[in-house]
């Protein structure tokens, strides 16, 4: 199995998972989906400089085969931005849920068929799944 296949499937699986999760109705899967999509894109950006292993960085003029440094710089920037944005969207989703009691991305309340989370339970349950990322953002 070639390394290209490995990278390509990794990108493919993560993108598929990301797209599926982003299309979910509630905010927490959507946040996870966004994280998956940003992981997929980070790996993809690395691959855009061609997949090479065991190559040195550019450090001398006589080096002919080297790993492309530019995608690494791009990925670094992309990671920083994606990390900050994930923290923001977690805080935003949490605040929206706590202020409006709605956890749907489309902002509509739960249809009467599905049972909405009871108010006193929601205050306890609401922050829990999203709390660790929010804590990370504060650190």
């Amino acid at each position: 199995m070639s390394i290209e296949f490995l990278v390509a499937t990794a990108v493919g699986v993560m993108s598929a998972a990301g797209i599926y999760l982003v299309l979910r109705a509630r905010t927490f899967p959507v946040v996870l989906g966004l994280a998956f999509m940003s992981y997929a894109i980070n790996v993809f950006l690395f691959a855009s400089g061609r997949v090479v292993i065991n190559q040195p960085p550019i450090w001398g003029k006589d080096v002919t085969a080297y790993s492309d440094p530019l995608p690494q710089a791009l990925v670094l920037t992309a990671i920083v931005i994606a990390f900050g944005m994930t923290a923001l969207v977690v805080v935003l989703a949490l605040r929206t849920y706590l202020e409006t009691g709605v956890d749907q991305v489309d902002g509509l309340a739960d249809p009467p068929g599905q049972k909405p989370p009871p108010p006193e339970e929601s205050a306890v349950l609401g922050p829990e799944p999203a709390a660790p990322p929010a804590g990370e953002a504060r650190r």
Partner: peptide
């Protein structure tokens, strides 16, 4: 509520921007 949608759609847009750049 509108903010959540706005942020999410723009984050997806940013991801696609990076795909295109790559």
């Amino acid at each position: 509520k509108a903010g959540v949608q706005y942020v999410v759609i723009n984050l997806v847009g940013s991801t696609l921007f990076l795909v295109a750049v790559g």
